[in-house]
Structure formats: C-alpha cells, structure tokens
Computed example of a mutant assay.
Amino acid sequence: MNPPHPAASTLDARDQRVFDAVRDLFSTQGMQISMDAVAQQAGCSKQTLYSRYGSKQELLRRVMQRHVSRATAGLHSLDQGDLRGSLLQFATDYLEHCNQPHVAQARRLIAADSPHFPQEARALYRDGAGALVLHVAEWLQARTALGQLGHDDPHFMAELLLSMIAGLDFEKQRFHTPHRADATVRRRWAEFSVDSFLRAFAVPETAAASHSNQHRSFS
C-alpha cells in the first residue's frame, strides 16, 4: 500500500468539516448516508461536494484514508528501535478510537445495512479495515527487514495483531455486554496483547530489549 497522501494528515478547514459530517452521519444513518445529508451537516452545497470530491464513493474513500492515517500514526511516532513502544502506542490509539460511542454506533448500523448495500460495504472494508491491515503489514515487514521480528507472513501477522488487540471487546459492545470501558483496563489489555505478539514474533535480542524497556517504564 502506498503511504497516505499528505492531505490525509493535514486537512484544511473545509475538508475537516466535511469529514466530521461524514463521521457523525455514519453513527446515525449508517450506509444510508447521502450527499444531501453530508452537505447539510457540513454547511455547504451538494454541488460543492461533487466539485471537491467527484462522487460519494471518492469522498468516503478519502474519509477512510484519513482514518487509516490517524490509526497508524502511533507506529511512526517513536524511534525505529522502540518496537514495543510503537506497537503499544498503536494498540492504545486503536482501542481508544474504537471505544468512542459514535464509532461503536456506526459499526452497528453499517453491519445492519451492509446486506442491502453490498458493493458500498465492500468498498468501505477495502478502504478502511483492509487498508489498515496492509499498512500494518508493511510496517511489520520493514521491522522484519531490520532484524527485529522473525521472518513470517506480514499480512498474517498484521491480521493476528489486530485480532489480539481487539479481542472480544467490539463483539461485547455490539451485544450490549459489559466490556473494557475504562482507559486503564484498555491499556492493560493493549500491553498484554502487544507483549504476547512480541513473544511469538520478536527475535530474542529485540524481545530482551523490549522486556528491559518495559521494566524501566514502570520503575
């Protein structure tokens, strides 16, 4: 996957209003979101939206690109040598984002609507969760090339990592069952999932360094 376009991380005010509108509407309208509704929510005309983004599909693609760029920012926020720190920042950010009420509500609505909008649902997956897996896989592959991770299939590793981080928390939310609603509890789960992943894939020297950094962080 190509790196996110610079515009994905530095939006101007017009894009930000539109993207915020899409985010809010996903949590109330799900897949039934329309350009009319986005224009009204963002305070602009529908003609402006089509002029700026070309189509609803392209607008949603840009929104998903922005989401992936923000979700993976933690992987690049620390020095390359701090493998555990980067993974832990990513895991914490991912859990915090997915536990926002509007995100949980949007997930429920989109899942309910997807049988009626299969093409749009597949596009959302491709540009959202699918792109996230690809980005994480490329990051893991780069760390493997640096000798920090043992050689394996980076795409399998990325999917496994995301599954470990998510656990059953999102399923519990979907069925309105008590879940990790506290930030401290989510942090502990993020540490457990990252450390379990590193025990499986980190080379011995990297694992030892990560273990040492972990102890220093709690001292």
Rank of each mutant, 00 (worst) to 15 (best):
H176I: 01
R187V: 10
K46L: 04
V22M: 07
S212P: 01
R17G: 07
E171M: 08
D153C: 07
M164D: 06
H215M: 14
T184L: 11
F197W: 10
R52V: 00
A208T: 14
E159V: 08
E159H: 09
V18G: 01
R61W: 06
L87P: 03
R17Y: 03
L161K: 03
G147E: 06
L124Y: 02
H155W: 08
V18C: 06
Q89V: 08
G147T: 03
S86M: 07
R66T: 13
S219L: 15
A129W: 10
D15V: 02
F26C: 11
A121P: 09
D113L: 05
E138M: 07
M31D: 09
S163C: 09
R187S: 13
F170T: 15
Q89K: 13
P115T: 05
Y53K: 00
A91N: 07
Q29C: 12
L198F: 07
Y94A: 07
V136K: 00
H155V: 15
P154V: 09
T92Y: 10
Q100A: 13
D182E: 08
D93H: 08
S34P: 12
R62P: 12
G81D: 14
S217A: 15
V203D: 06
A181R: 06
Q41G: 08
H76Y: 14
Q41N: 11
Y53N: 02
Q32Y: 07
L149A: 02
R199V: 14
D36M: 11
F156S: 06
S34W: 05
G30T: 01
G167D: 04
Y50G: 08
A129K: 12
Q105L: 15
R216S: 09
D169S: 11
H215G: 02
A73I: 09
T48C: 10
M164C: 07
D169G: 10
L49T: 04
D79G: 07
P204Q: 01
M31V: 06
T184S: 13
G74M: 05
P118Q: 01
M1H: 13
D24N: 09
H135T: 15
A207Q: 13
R199C: 15
D113R: 08
D153G: 03
F19K: 05
S34L: 04
T206L: 00
A137I: 04
S196N: 09
A142K: 14
P6H: 05
T92V: 11
H215P: 00
M31Q: 06
F19I: 12
H76C: 12
P118L: 00
G167E: 02
A7F: 04
P204N: 04
H97L: 14
A190E: 02
A131K: 13
C44H: 03
A104L: 14
S212G: 12
S210I: 03
R23G: 10
E191Q: 12
D20N: 13
R174T: 14
A13R: 10
H5W: 10
